[in-house]
Nucleic acid binder design. Structure first.
Length: 292
DNA sequence: AATAGCAGCAACCGCAAGAGC
DNA sequence: GGCTCTTGCGGTTGCTGCTAT
């Protein structure tokens, strides 16, 4: 017996969500909380697939969503984290409070991928072309988009346990008993609830605006490091529940940006012998210091 | 003013992991 | 251990508005 579809699809609304649907979903989740997405549409009276409801909530209606342009600091952090983690959008989003994986993924695909490729051609300068060229351009672009960047191939599957440790974002932040009208009014300007206690990347990024050096950080030592017993340093013991009951990293986590590790590493690294034990151990020390 | 092409982004799809039985 | 269900993730699609011609 095969997998059953998430919904019948017959007579189910698809496409853009209406204001009324949003209100219904918000009302329901504020009252009952998140979860049980499969049954949610039926019980909430929504003519939508459960998956669609979940996506709409997580990517658009959640109280802690930060709307608006991605700042330079956020952009810088995305680039750095992508270098480190590859296309693990949910993890990258976890380090950017208020940003969703979908938003970051879109931003990367539309804006940052070009930068990462070193394509500095502005849209206006590339616009003077024949119709045939324009037509071909889209096809070529589709092909190019499928080509992975070198560093993406180097992020190994054994990152997963560290990845879990890094993912301390908390999505269950709904305050019950608020009307959707009040909710919409409040969330239109400020988040309804406090942001999770995640590191303030901006402050640290400002101190070192340069990107991680050309040499691929994730390739050189991160995956190797993860194969070792040192990876235990990044386990769940390094996280705790804070006074608000939120799952949060140790205080030092919030005082030091994740991206300081490569900064520290590269500032002292033996560049002539990148794969040396001394480099490897030094990087391990950086992580240990960072977490203690 | 009309049209074509492009960029941005919300939404959808398929797959996989984990939980529960 | 195997099956089903639920949830989450990443890739992809398609709509919409903007810009260039």
């Amino acid at each position: 017996m095969g997998r059953s579809p998430c919904c019948s699809k017959v007579g189910i609304n698809t496409g853009a969500w209406t204001t009324a649907e949003d209100k219904t979903l918000i009302d329901y989740i504020l009252l009952h909380g998140e979860g049980r997405w499969r049954n949610l549409p039926k019980t909430a009276g929504l003519n939508r697939c459960g998956k669609s409801c979940r996506l709409r909530w997580l990517n658009y209606l959640r109280p802690d969503i930060k709307r608006g342009n991605i700042s330079d600091d956020e952009e810088d952090l995305i680039i750095r984290l992508h270098k480190l983690l590859g296309n693990r959008w949910s993890l990258i989003a976890g380090r950017l409070p208020g940003r969703t994986d979908n938003e970051i993924k879109n931003y990367w695909n539309t804006t940052l991928r070009k930068k990462a490729r070193g394509d500095h051609t502005s849209p206006s300068t590339s616009s003077s072309k024949s119709p045939t060229k324009q037509c071909n351009k889209k096809k070529i672009k589709k092909k190019l988009d499928k080509v992975e960047l070198p560093h993406q191939q180097n992020v190994e599957s054994n990152v997963s346990h560290v990845v879990k440790a890094l993912d301390c974002s908390d999505h269950s932040l709904v305050t019950p008993n608020k009307s959707s009208d009040q909710y919409i009014k409040e969330t239109s300007t400020e988040p309804l609830v406090q942001q999770p206690s995640t590191p303030n990347h901006n402050s640290t990024i400002n101190q070192s605006p340069d990107l991680v050096p050309d040499i691929d950080f994730s390739n050189i030592c991160f995956t190797e490091l993860l194969d070792s017993e040192i990876s235990g340093l990044l386990g769940p013991d390094n996280f705790r529940h804070d006074e608000m009951g939120e799952y949060a990293p140790r205080s030092s986590f919030s005082e030091k940006s994740i991206m300081e590790i490569p900064e520290e590493f590269w500032s002292t690294v033996d560049e002539h012998n990148l794969y040396s034990n001394s480099n490897y151990l030094y990087f391990a020390d950086c992580i240990a210091d960072w977490l203690v």
